[in-house]
Structures are given as C-alpha cells and as structure tokens.
Simulated assay, not measured.
Amino acid sequence: MTGPTRDELVELALELLAHLEADELSLAEVVDRIETVTTDPTLTRDILDTAEMRGIIDREGGRIRHNRGGTFVRFESQVVQKEGEFDCRRCGASITTGHFVQFESGELGPFGSSCIRKVLGRE
C-alpha cells in the first residue's frame, strides 16, 4: 500500500489552510498545522507558496493572513470519530478515540480531542 502522492499532500494541506478559523496566525502556527500533513520542509514551502498563489493566504513578514474564501470545518459533519489505537498527528500522544477531518481532497488525522481544535483554530 502506498501513501498519498506529493500533489495529494499539497491539496490536503491547502484545504486545511482554506478552512482555518483564525484571520491571522504567525508563520510558526501555520507551519504547525501544515506539519499535520507533512514534515518535509521543501513541501511545506511549496504549500505556503501555492496557498499564496491561489489567494488562500497573504504573507507579510512572520504573519500569515487568511483570506476568507473557504468555510469553517463543520464538526458535526466533517469531523469523524473512530475508536482504536492511534497516535495523534499533531502531538504524538497515544489516543483511543481519533478525530479525523473529512475534506474533499482526503482525510486528515487522527487527532486527539484538544489537538483537533488547535489544528482547526478553535483554541
């Protein structure tokens, strides 16, 4: 079984960025979210460049402004909980209930209950 392609990872990260709830974040906060998709620094730069080219974000210094083109993730319909043995993609903690975000470009997760809120900008 093969993992997602580079293009699929880019699209998944772009969809995540398009659904962020914060109007403005630091570069470090945005990279923290992208790292839930990939930790490859070259791919992270490509994702940021593509997000800017597509008008999803504007970069100014160390700040990233989100352009409101997307919609927020709807927890009731786009976040699915699954029971099992998982490691959170954000913090690495062992969890038994994984929260997965269902995007058009694919599924992102698992996350613990507090990390899913942080990734989506609700905390």
Rank of each mutant, 00 (worst) to 15 (best):
I64Q: 09
L48D: 10
V10N: 02
G98A: 04
F75G: 06
A93Y: 03
A93H: 14
L27Y: 15
R59Q: 12
E24N: 12
L17R: 09
D87M: 13
D32K: 11
G62V: 12
V73L: 02
H99Q: 03
F72T: 07
S105L: 10
T38S: 06
A18M: 14
N67S: 12
N67I: 13
V79H: 10
G121W: 12
G98K: 04
L27R: 15
Q81H: 09
L17N: 07
E24T: 11
V101E: 03
R74L: 13
A51F: 01
V80S: 11
I56L: 07
T96F: 05
R33E: 02
H99W: 10
T42E: 08
T38A: 00
F103Q: 01
V119Q: 05
E11W: 07
E104M: 15
S26W: 00
H19F: 07
G55N: 04
S26Y: 05
G70Y: 05
G3F: 08
F100D: 00
V101D: 01
S77M: 13
E24K: 15
D7Y: 11
G84T: 00
C91I: 04
A18V: 08
K82I: 10
I95H: 05
T96D: 02
D58P: 03
P110G: 06
T96H: 03
M53L: 13
